[in-house]
Amino acid sequence: MNVTALSTSSRPSPPAGEREPAAKNRALSGFLGSNIFGLIIAIAVFVLLFGLFANGFLSKVNIYSISRSIGINGVIGLAMMTVLVTGGLNLGLGAIAVCSAMVVGWSLQNLGLGIAPSLMIGVLAGAALGAVNGLIVVTTRLHSFVVTLATMSIFFGTMILLSGAQGFNALPRVMTTFGRIRMYGVVSPLLLIMLLVAAILYYIYRYTAFGREMLAAGANPFAAKLSGLPVERLFVWCHALCGAIGAIAGVMASVRNGAVVPSMAGPLGADWLLPAFLAPVLGGTLLTGGSVSVIGAILGTIFVEIITSGLYMLQIGEFWIQTALGLVLLGAILLERGRAAMALQRSTRR
């Protein structure tokens, strides 16, 4: 069993579109049946529906606010994606994000440091907290679920104790106005930050040995270990990456709010869990590890934000939106399974 596993994982299958030319047709039909194609269609359909029936959905203000939420929630989803690679997860993503944003606020207001060094410290703090998770996961070999369940309350509780639950509301004007910039009247710069983060991740996973190694380690840790990869160290890096990107999301949310608020992600930062999982899962990132889809995660976020905003415009009440998002997640999972089962059936028949 190990031998076969080794051979498949040491030669990770090339991503769609890079396959040998003979399989071009299959690649095309693969694309037509992929999450990405499905999401594009779904996004188009819902934009059309909401554009027709939801008053004000296509107004400049609303498009701007959608672009802002896509920016923030996209980064949250990408952060979770980096740790889903390991086959694990990070329940404490929201907690880490809030903690890091608080560090940035503290460094700006209490230490009086400039914006750039403060942001740097914040991202490093996020990476450090993520690395703590990673280190505990690999040394104890416990599932990251229970480790991050414990550390989320440790991190969040400690942050509240240290800060006295007081936020930082005297952010420099540059940061608060940055959150209000409207490019071409409809695009928030937060969206561009998300695209930048996504581009970096895309590059890492597709073109660097480090990224490929993370994927290989996540796909089959035992095989990767046998083929000489430092699996433990790679897993710690995955968790650190998650923390660092989480920190960016925390700062972005603070920029939108105009202040660092300890409760911005709900109790223990748990309110971010749904957006964090929705985007990568809708986009086709496997929870079993070893796969990512950066473009899928972005499309997943766009889809979720369009649904959220459209339902909001239809005035069905914000609480029902939560129900709808849960149904979307459930539907996407089941659809994906159904498609996988059908594909299997078709291939066995052939």
């Binding site: 997860l89 679920f145 869990l273 749904l274 999982f277 899962v281 929870l287 009440g317 609480f319 029902w320 939106i321 939560q322 129900t323 709808a324 998002l325 849960g326 149904l327 997640l329 459930l330 999972i333 089941l334 399974r337």
Partner: peptide
Amino acid sequence: LTHKSGLTSFIITLATLSIFKGISLGITQ
């Protein structure tokens, strides 16, 4: 759902968590 989908109960119950919670909040406002 967990059995039918063959997925981890984590993601299934994350979805039903927001469905149940949303219904409770929606009914009671």
